[in-house]
Structure formats: structure tokens, C-alpha cells
């Protein structure tokens, strides 16, 4: 189902690099002031290395979404240090953060978040436009990424003409197209039926098998079971962090 592509090269890089993709040290996030003060994250420290497939699980209000926003450079922590691929993100300005999001992170959202009325291939190519990649190369890479998720036949379709599972695969292709250091998935199967969910999870497993670093936020335990490491959160803190050899990559391919 998943064809070989550029990501294969990353496997070699993983061994040679010991810098964690994500390094959080005592990160807190506080919203509001006075009476309305809410501590969404309370001194969280976690390191995620290359090639890991980490599931972050927790009930709603446990802080997992806040963590996803901070890890995804969409929000800045109130306290603490966050390094992404060795770079200190906490001190970056808005423009640099946009660049980081563009080059280092591939987002996959629960509700796909494709741009409406825009062809799949153009959706996939969009991050490359913001990365100032030329039009011809953009198209090639977008088609390659669609091929990698098995959707090359639907490149010319608009989101409204695709099923949920297909839309999510387009979103994954868009996340992969810039060859980011990490895929950040927020409940990627939350809006899908069980059959499509299984397909998407298989795709993630296959990407993991090729060496992709994946961070997935979920509240479904069977989804979390695909990951090589499960981090549980509650009240803004990490309450358990277990690596599970049994859930190693590739099993589902």
C-alpha cells in the first residue's frame, strides 16, 4: 500500500543523530489570570527521539492538546524550555515559528483541515509554496507524496469529492511533503469510520517502519496501542510513560 520514497533515507540519519526531536524541560502553560487562571501544563518534561512513534493519551482537559500546540509551535509555553530538533523554540519570533512549522513539522488534524475548493495535489503542494519551492518541483513532490499515501489517482480531486479516509490521506501527504522531522497527529482517526481508521493507522505504522518520527494525540486506547511508546497525561502532568516493544513498527504492514 505504501510505496518507497524519499523517507527511506531518514533511517540512516536516525542512527547517526542522538539529538532528540523533541525536548521539553519543565514546560508549563498557564492561561488567564487571577480567578480564571488555568494551569494547562504543569512542569512537563519529555524527550522524544528520532524514529519513535509516541502516543499521548489522556482525558479531555488533561493537557494533551496544549502539549500538542506547544510541540507543534502553534503556541508558546509560559515557562520552561522547548527544543525542537536541537533548536530552542521558546525564544523564536513569529516568523521563525512559521518557518519551523513549515519545515520541521507535518500536521495531521482530526478534521483533515484541507483547503476547500482546492485540488488534492494543490493542497499537498501548499507547504512547499510557503517554503519557496519552484512550481515544477512542487508539483513533482506533491505527486510523489500523494503516491506515498496511495492516492496518486485522486490528485485532481477536490476535498469535497473525496471520502474522509482519502481526505485524511491527502492531509498526511501534505504533512510529509516537506520531509519534516516529525509528524504531529491530533486524533487523526477521530472523524473516521473503523475501516478508514484502520487504513490510516496502517499508514502511520508503515511510515514509522520507514523511520518517521510520529507524535499522535489520541484518547482511544486501541489507537494508542499502535505506538511504540505511550505517554499518559492527567491534569497537565505526565502520569506514565511506557515503551512497549510489543507494539513495534511494521506489524500491521
Amino acid at each position: 500500500m505504501v510505496s518507497a520514497g524519499a523517507p527511506v533515507a531518514r533511517v540512516a540519519a536516525v542512527a547517526s543523530s542522538n539529538i532528540p526531536v523533541i525536548s521539553l524541560r519543565g514546560v508549563s502553560k498557564i492561561y488567564g489570570q487571577g480567578e480564571a487562571r488555568v494551569t494547562a501544563l504543569d512542569g512537563v518534561s519529555i524527550h522524544i527521539r528520532r524514529g519513535e512513534f509516541v502516543a499521548i493519551v489522556g482525558a479531555s482537559g488533561s493537557g494533551k492538546s496544549t502539549m500538542m500546540n506547544i510541540v507543534g509551535c502553534l503556541d508558546a509555553p509560559t515557562h520552561g524550555e522547548f527544543k525542537l530538533d536541537g533548536m530552542d523554540v521558546s525564544s523564536m519570533d513569529e516568523y521563525q515559528l512559521a518557518q519551523i512549522r513549515n519545515r520541521k513539522i507535518g500536521f495531521v488534524f482530526q478534521n483533515f483541515n484541507l483547503i476547500p475548493r482546492t485540488k488534492a495535489v494543490d493542497n499537498v503542494a501548499m507547504p512547499l509554496a510557503y517554503a519557496k519551492v519552484g512550481r515544477v518541483e512542487r508539483k513533482q513532490r506533491a505527486l510523489a507524496a500523494l503516491d506515498a499515501v496511495g492516492l496518486s489517482a485522486r490528485a485532481g480531486h477536490k476535498p469535497s469529492q473525496l471520502s474522509g479516509g482519502q481526505q485524511q490521506r491527502v492531509a498526511i501527504a501534505r504533512a510529509l511533503v516537506t520531509d519534516p522531522v516529525m509528524l504531529l497527529a491530533d486524533e487523526p482517526t477521530g472523524a473516521l469510520d473503523s475501516h478508514s481508521s484502520a487504513e490510516i493507522l496502517d499508514l502511520f505504522s508503515a511510515l514509522h517502519a520507514r523511520g518517521r518520527t510520529i507524535v499522535m494525540i489520541t484518547h482511544e486506547l486501541d489507537v494508542a496501542a499502535r505506538a511504540s511508546r505511550t505517554v499518559r497525561m492527567q491534569d497537565g502532568r505526565i502520569i506514565s510513560d511506557t515503551a512497549r516493544a510489543a507494539a513495534l513498527s511494521g506489524g500491521a504492514v
Partner: peptide, 16 residues
């Protein structure tokens, strides 16, 4: 608004 959010998430800067 949502489209703007998506574009920003995938790397559009303010200037874009």
C-alpha cells in the same frame, strides 16, 4: 478563519 489557521499551521507567515 479556518483556512487562515491551516495555512499558518503549515508554514504561512504573517506576510504571506
Amino acid at each position: 478563519t479556518r483556512e487562515i489557521g491551516i495555512r499558518k499551521a503549515i508554514g504561512a507567515s504573517r506576510g504571506n
